[in-house]
Design a protein around this nucleic acid. Structure first.
Lengths: 345, 345
DNA sequence: CTGTTAGCGCTTTCAC
DNA sequence: GTGAAAGCGCTAACAG
């Protein structure tokens, strides 16, 4: 590194025979300073390529213009979409985003929070790990005066503003659509019992069945733990080979639905005629797979933007910190995997 | 925000009737300080939950322990994998990563670089946009004393250390595999002519054909611009309907290969028997799609780790800044889409 | 309109 | 072993 010593205000002041404070004010076009001095200083600064020392400014102002963002997994279509939205929103307001991942491990999440704090972000956006409950590490951040906003995977035990997807409504819409299409025996491959999003989706599923007076068989609810393709495949097998096989399967996420599709294709079950399949998240793969997978879009990009803007508004004191919860509505994306009866759509 | 005033060294010093410098040194177990003072200070700090003011430390040391990372696109399997690797590697060495994206737009990349500089990262990892050529904005960073490392999408006009994938070798191995499988007329749907990675892959393709004395027809080379599924679909159509249809297609990336597969399935061309299809990048979808898509794995996670470690080594002065280029070898992942002749594998 | 001064919190040299 | 003091670069209150 050439490490060309950087020009400071002091240098400018000395060079122009003015004081440091005058130079500082001139660069900000402070009203006290004469037009001429301002011009002179700015010209000099421009010419010598003066860049204020950000570290010093941050220190002085006690602000970094960095916000932290922690997700369970980075290589994940939904989360990377959220990150993308958050970064773009932050960029517009001259904030940078420090990204970290917990790998769904509490220990890693705690470390990430600590490093964030140490490298002094002004605030934090977090989607918690499956293992997080009380979130002492998050409360610590808040106590240190760093505002925190939770998004997507949240804990109600941690009192912060929240941006979430309306999972209940998404599931309700999805299952209602299956019913509209004429499916009568709808199964649900759900997520873990301790995870809020999974519970909300399951609740939406149940409610839709109830509201429409459809049969419900507890055997139709399967609980994933890893939430991967293999589980989808295995549960599809279990469901189809059970005593009371369903005629549609609503899956906690697209990846699981993919496993279901795979099993059905192997068994040559016609989709959507004899079995409807519906996913959640509307990943790229839902569009790509064959037949196209109907899914619930969670608007991840918008979620990222919203959470970032919320945080920045708080940081800029545009807005008081109230622990509101913002629910983002989902969109049902209908594709071939549930279009048994296209006319009804 | 409650903004509980933070404990400073001065507070500790006053409380314990020692000087600030002693307190500072004690916390670092400086050899000059007596065991007892060290114990006392540490105990007090622990008890009162002292956290050093990172801003002040950074300012003093002229170092932030943040590194910047700019990619063309965040919602992209390969890049998010790289980011994941970089973040995890950085975390191990107590660095944080500031992530930004250029959307493949030069203007956005310049802005990102500027904001990075302003929020004072210690160094930068960058994969440039398709529009970047001279990279004045990157040179500026280097002049400001911030080391930069280019990865994946690089420009030889910008003199920095680089971490890249051995695209030539990857393509060469891929095409050689097709030849081994008995394919004789191998087409290539390639990327843009101005993009280095695309050229390297095309070079590998050509070389493999030459080395094995296979036919080459210029009609077999199609140039993508958007590099998406639709282009794959369209070019597959063109190729199959051409005068001299190929019996295998090597695609610049998995997404394009997916379009090819789609067309072939529609036309009921048996894969791999009558047409081999090979992708590049080994995205999740290659594994998921049916039939499984053979692809070239670029080891994105390792690339991210490598680039981050390289940068941090420079920042920590463990290593001189030499503008070496590190080439990561690819792995050919063979799946059903090219397994015409499994015995040979 | 401009300069002087103090200080942000921490590290580090130098002196005792 | 410990303390005093200077200073990193910038901002801002206060004084003229």
């Amino acid at each position: 590194m050439t490490e060309k010593r950087k020009l400071t205000l002091k240098d400018i002041a000395k060079e122009l025979n003015i004081s440091v404070s005058t130079a500082s004010r001139a660069l900000k076009s402070h009203p006290d300073i004469s037009e001429e001095t301002i011009r002179m200083v700015k010209e000099f600064a421009e010419k010598h390529n003066y860049v204020p020392n950000a570290l010093a400014v941050n220190f002085r102002k006690n602000k970094t213009y960095n916000i932290g963002l922690i997700v369970p997994e980075l290589v994940h279509h939904f989360f990377s979409t959220v990150i993308s939205g958050a970064i773009n929103a932050a960029k517009k307001r001259r904030y940078n985003v420090l990204v970290s991942q917990s790998n769904d491990i509490l220990e890693d999440e705690i470390t990430a929070c600590r490093t964030m704090l140490a490298s002094s972000v002004d605030g934090l956006l977090i989607s918690i790990s499956n293992e997080t409950l009380e979130g002492e590490h998050i409360k610590t951040l808040i106590e240190e005066g760093k505002p925190v906003i939770q998004f997507d995977k949240i804990s109600d035990l941690i009192d912060t503003p929240k941006v979430i997807v309306d999972d209940f409504e998404g599931a309700y819409k999805a299952v209602s659509h299956l019913i509209d299409q004429g499916y009568k025996k709808i199964a649900h491959i759900r997520g873990r019992l301790e995870v809020k999003n999974a519970n909300e989706r399951a609740r939406g599923y149940k409610k839709a069945l109830e509201d429409r007076g459809l049969e419900f068989d507890p055997e139709w609810v399967k609980v994933c733990s890893l939430i991967n393709e293999q589980e989808g495949y295995d549960f599809a097998k279990e469901l189809l080979e059970g005593k009371n096989p369903p005629d549609a399967i609503f899956c906690i996420t697209d990846l699981v639905a993919l496993g279901v599709l795979k099993f059905l294709k192997e068994k040559a079950v016609p989709i959507p005629e004899e079995m409807g399949v519906l996913g959640f998240s509307n990943w790229k793969l839902a569009e790509i797979v064959h037949p196209g997978l109907s899914s619930v879009d969670q608007h991840g990009y918008f979620m990222g933007e919203t959470a970032a803007n919320m945080l920045i508004s708080i940081l800029e004191n545009e807005k008081e910190l109230v622990n509101e919860t913002l629910e983002i509505k989902t969109d049902l994306i209908i594709r071939d995997s549930t279009l048994k009866n296209p006319s009804i759509c």
